[in-house]
C-alpha cells in the first residue's frame, strides 16, 4: 500500500464510522482533519474503533501484523492520532518498519 491507498482507507473507514452520526456524517475529510481533541471528529470510543478497523483491514490486505495503538504510539512526543495525515504517516512508518524486519 502506498500513502494514498492508506489515506483512502482512512477516509472510507471514517465515513463508515460516522455514517450514524448526523452531526458529522458527510463532513469533508482531508489531510489536516483533526481526529481527536478540539474540533476532532471522534470521541475516544470511536477513535479506538477506527484504529482497530484500520489495523484489521491493513493486516488482511497486506498479510502483515502491524499494531497501530500500542505503547510505542502512546509514547510519541507528537500524538499520531492528531489528524488524518499524521495517522497516515504513522501507518506508513509501521509498514516500512515491518518490511525492513522481513527483509
Amino acid at each position: 500500500m502506498n500513502r494514498s491507498d492508506v489515506m483512502d482507507l482512512i477516509v472510507t473507514t471514517l465515513q463508515d464510522l460516522l455514517a450514524s452520526d448526523p452531526a458529522r456524517a458527510g463532513l469533508p475529510i482531508e489531510e489536516g482533519t483533526r481526529l481527536y481533541g478540539p474540533e476532532g471528529l471522534l470521541d475516544s470510543l470511536r477513535l479506538v474503533s477506527l484504529v482497530l478497523d484500520l489495523e484489521q483491514e491493513i493486516n488482511d490486505r497486506m498479510d502483515t501484523a502491524i499494531t497501530i495503538a500500542d505503547s510505542r504510539a502512546m509514547s510519541q512526543q507528537r500524538s499520531p492520532f492528531r489528524s488524518v495525515g499524521s495517522l497516515a504517516d504513522y501507518i506508513m512508518r509501521l509498514l516500512a518498519d515491518e518490511q525492513q524486519q522481513a527483509a
Binding site: Y36, G37, P38, S79, F81
Partner: peptide, 15 residues
C-alpha cells in the same frame, strides 16, 4: 488511566 491516555493523545496539556 484512561483519562490520562486521552490527555496525551489530545495533546491538551500543550494548550
Amino acid at each position: 488511566p484512561t483519562f490520562l491516555n486521552l490527555l496525551l493523545i489530545s495533546e491538551a496539556y500543550k494548550r
